[in-house]
Protein backbone atom coordinates (compact mmCIF):
# COMPACT_ATOMS: atom_id res chain seq x y z
CA UNK A 1 0.00 0.00 0.00
CA UNK A 2 1.46 3.27 -1.07
CA UNK A 3 1.42 6.17 1.32
CA UNK A 4 -1.57 8.27 0.67
CA UNK A 5 -0.59 11.59 -0.96
CA UNK A 6 -1.31 14.49 1.25
CA UNK A 7 -2.92 16.54 -1.50
CA UNK A 8 -5.59 13.99 -2.17
CA UNK A 9 -6.48 13.52 1.46
CA UNK A 10 -6.79 17.26 1.87
CA UNK A 11 -9.02 17.40 -1.20
CA UNK A 12 -11.35 14.91 0.44
CA UNK A 13 -11.37 17.07 3.58
CA UNK A 14 -12.13 20.17 1.53
CA UNK A 15 -14.99 18.44 -0.25
CA UNK A 16 -16.50 17.25 3.00
CA UNK A 17 -16.20 20.76 4.41
CA UNK A 18 -17.90 22.30 1.38
CA UNK A 19 -20.72 19.78 1.61
CA UNK A 20 -21.21 20.71 5.23
CA UNK A 21 -21.31 24.34 4.27
CA UNK A 22 -23.94 23.70 1.64
CA UNK A 23 -26.01 21.83 4.17
CA UNK A 24 -25.67 24.63 6.71
CA UNK A 25 -26.81 27.23 4.19
CA UNK A 26 -29.57 25.26 2.54
CA UNK A 27 -31.34 23.56 5.39
CA UNK A 28 -33.76 25.52 7.52
CA UNK A 29 -34.28 22.78 10.03
CA UNK A 30 -32.12 23.34 13.09
CA UNK A 31 -31.29 19.68 13.45
CA UNK A 32 -29.95 19.54 9.93
CA UNK A 33 -27.94 22.64 10.53
CA UNK A 34 -26.34 20.99 13.55
CA UNK A 35 -25.64 17.89 11.47
CA UNK A 36 -23.97 20.08 8.85
CA UNK A 37 -21.82 21.71 11.47
CA UNK A 38 -20.72 18.29 12.65
CA UNK A 39 -19.74 17.45 9.09
CA UNK A 40 -17.68 20.61 8.81
CA UNK A 41 -15.95 19.96 12.13
CA UNK A 42 -15.22 16.43 11.09
CA UNK A 43 -13.71 17.67 7.83
CA UNK A 44 -11.46 20.07 9.70
CA UNK A 45 -10.40 17.25 11.99
CA UNK A 46 -9.64 15.12 8.99
CA UNK A 47 -7.38 17.85 7.64
CA UNK A 48 -5.50 17.91 10.95
CA UNK A 49 -5.01 14.19 11.01
CA UNK A 50 -3.83 14.23 7.41
CA UNK A 51 -1.25 16.85 8.23
CA UNK A 52 -0.17 14.96 11.34
CA UNK A 53 0.20 11.79 9.35
CA UNK A 54 2.16 13.60 6.68
CA UNK A 55 4.78 14.79 9.16
CA UNK A 56 4.51 11.74 11.36
CA UNK A 57 3.61 13.89 14.33
CA UNK A 58 1.08 13.21 17.04
CA UNK A 59 0.00 16.86 17.15
CA UNK A 60 -2.54 16.38 14.38
CA UNK A 61 -4.34 13.73 16.34
CA UNK A 62 -4.19 15.83 19.50
CA UNK A 63 -5.90 18.62 17.63
CA UNK A 64 -8.54 16.19 16.42
CA UNK A 65 -9.20 15.23 20.02
CA UNK A 66 -9.73 18.88 20.91
CA UNK A 67 -12.08 19.31 17.98
CA UNK A 68 -14.11 16.32 19.01
CA UNK A 69 -14.29 17.65 22.57
CA UNK A 70 -15.53 20.98 21.29
CA UNK A 71 -18.02 19.25 19.01
CA UNK A 72 -19.41 17.29 21.94
CA UNK A 73 -19.93 20.41 24.03
CA UNK A 74 -21.43 22.26 21.09
CA UNK A 75 -23.84 19.47 20.26
CA UNK A 76 -24.96 19.23 23.87
CA UNK A 77 -25.78 22.94 23.99
CA UNK A 78 -27.20 22.99 20.48
CA UNK A 79 -29.56 20.12 21.08
CA UNK A 80 -30.67 21.59 24.41
CA UNK A 81 -31.51 24.76 22.48
CA UNK A 82 -33.41 22.71 19.91
CA UNK A 83 -35.52 21.19 22.66
CA UNK A 84 -36.27 24.58 24.15
CA UNK A 85 -37.12 26.11 20.80
CA UNK A 86 -39.44 23.28 19.95
CA UNK A 87 -41.34 23.82 23.18
CA UNK A 88 -41.32 27.66 23.01
CA UNK A 89 -42.17 28.22 19.36
CA UNK A 90 -43.40 24.97 17.99
CA UNK A 91 -41.24 24.85 14.88
CA UNK A 92 -37.68 23.91 14.00
CA UNK A 93 -37.54 26.43 11.17
CA UNK A 94 -34.54 28.62 11.92
CA UNK A 95 -35.91 31.49 9.84
CA UNK A 96 -38.84 31.79 12.24
CA UNK A 97 -36.40 32.81 14.97
CA UNK A 98 -35.55 36.34 14.00
CA UNK A 99 -36.73 38.25 17.06
CA UNK A 100 -33.18 39.37 17.82
CA UNK A 101 -33.03 41.62 14.78
CA UNK A 102 -34.72 44.29 16.89
CA UNK A 103 -37.41 46.83 16.26
CA UNK A 104 -37.84 49.12 13.30
CA UNK A 105 -36.96 52.38 15.02
CA UNK A 106 -33.80 54.16 13.98
Amino acid sequence: MNPIPMEQSLMVAAMLFSLGLIGLLVRRNVIFMLISIEIMLNAAGLAFVVAGSHWQAADGQVMFLFIITMAAAEVAIGLALVLRLQSDLPTLDVDAMDQLKGGDDA
Binding site: L24, L25, R28, V94, D95, D98, Q99, K101, G102
Partner: peptide, 11 residues
Protein backbone atom coordinates in the same frame (compact mmCIF):
# COMPACT_ATOMS: atom_id res chain seq x y z
CA UNK B 1 -28.04 43.16 6.98
CA UNK B 2 -29.09 42.59 10.58
CA UNK B 3 -31.97 40.29 9.69
CA UNK B 4 -31.92 38.04 12.72
CA UNK B 5 -31.74 35.02 10.39
CA UNK B 6 -29.11 32.54 11.35
CA UNK B 7 -28.57 31.16 7.85
CA UNK B 8 -27.99 34.65 6.53
CA UNK B 9 -25.24 35.16 9.08
CA UNK B 10 -23.68 31.80 8.25
CA UNK B 11 -23.71 32.77 4.58
Amino acid sequence: SQTGRLRWYAA
